[in-house]
Design a protein around this nucleic acid. Structure first.
Length: 337
DNA sequence: AAACCGGGGTG
DNA sequence: CACCCAGGTTT
């Protein structure tokens, strides 16, 4: 991992933001691409939104990318391009919470702040036999205090790295290596046979189904797109004209949508192709999508506010949700790279 | 305190 | 399928 032992706060920050709720194997390529494109925080701050979001495309949790841009620009504007070197200033940055602030402060500036991530929750809950839910306010406070108490303030960076590595390689979520564990004889969870019960989480997420009907409208080699500006999934990413419905089958609504919502003239278009249902499982939503290919005739008039026509080359430079990027590549033959 | 925010890997 | 991932922000 290129960020291990890294002392450049910009690189530490970038790697930590990328790794939020993201596995190392998934984030590694993204990290390398960002460092290549934007070697310094000033480079990142100067980059256009669309270019940065394109580099983030497919990684998910896109607010991380928006906060990344905002923070880079803030540091250039207000900290002379120098990353703040203390916990309080660091945690005040957008997109930086307790974990990330402790990681940057300890790795980059040798400050004595203990990290508490999923690994730490797991190790501490098992070794000490703590069943307070880690997703409760009380649990967060309790584990943070314990972690801070255990931290070796002389070597905070090494300590933080060690406990997270230990959680990732020995005290794993499933099938932990208790036989080789240095805490074998003192681990409360192991002694009481509670390894599979700890850590405790209370909140069970509910997954809702959503039905997206996308319209692929092409004309003269260009496609009609829009940017998602609402506070919803995929904010600031691009998509095609969309009709969301309550169920998979939307009957005769496609034509009505094109006329009413897009202002297209009746009988000036044809739906030439309807895809099968594509399913994308997100953490808290199941997206079921159908794609309608629309053929326009000579008299067709197309909207309008909020939409724009883009060529394939322009489209490739914009960030689309994975679902749409996959459909473009598999069914339309447009490859992103 | 609870809801919301992606995508992928693993067993 | 359930669970988890070097979490954070908004309501």
């Amino acid at each position: 991992m290129p960020w291990k032992g890294e002392k450049d706060a910009y690189r530490i920050w970038l790697s930590e933001i990328i790794l939020q709720q993201t596995r190392v194997g998934q984030g590694l390529d993204y990290y390398n691409r960002f460092i290549t494109h934007y070697p310094s925080i000033a480079d990142l701050a100067a980059a256009p939104d669309d270019a940065v979001m394109k580099l983030w495309e497919g990684l998910g949790y896109y607010s991380r990318c928006r906060n990344l841009m905002a923070t880079a620009r803030y540091i250039v504007a207000h900290h002379n391009g120098q990353f703040p070197d203390n916990y309080e200033d660091i945690i005040s940055l957008k997109g930086v919470g307790p974990y990330t602030a402790a990681a940057i402060a300890s790795f980059g500036f040798n400050r004595p702040h203990a990290v508490v991530d999923g690994n730490v929750y797991r190790v501490l809950s098992r070794v000490f036999g703590i069943d307070t839910p880690t997703d409760s306010t009380e649990g967060k406070k309790q584990f943070a205090e314990l972690a801070q108490q255990l931290l070796d303030p002389k070597i905070p960076g090494e300590y933080n790295q060690a406990i997270m590595d230990f959680g990732a390689t020995v005290c794993k979520p499933q099938s932990p290596l208790c036989g080789n564990c240095i805490f074998h004889d003192i681990c409360v969870a192991r002694k009481q046979n509670l390894i599979d019960q700890l850590p405790v989480k209370t909140k069970k997420l509910s997954i809702r189904a959503r039905y997206f009907n996308y319209f692929l409208i092409q004309k003269g080699g260009k496609m009609l797109i829009r940017q998602r500006r609402e506070k919803d999934i995929w904010q600031d990413l691009y998509e095609f004209p969309l009709l969301e419905s309550d169920a998979v089958a939307i009957g005769k609504k496609p034509a009505a949508f094109l006329e009413k919502e897009l202002g297209m003239r009746k009988n000036s278009f044809q739906i030439t192709q309807t895809s099968s249902c594509f399913i994308r499982q997100l953490t808290h939503q199941t997206i079921k999508a159908v794609f309608f290919h629309v053929q326009l005739d000579e008299t067709a008039t197309v909207p309008h506010l909020g939409f724009s026509w883009v060529s394939q080359d322009e489209l490739k430079k914009l960030a689309f949700p994975r679902l749409l990027r996959d459909y473009l590549e598999r069914e339309v033959g447009i490859k992103s790279k």
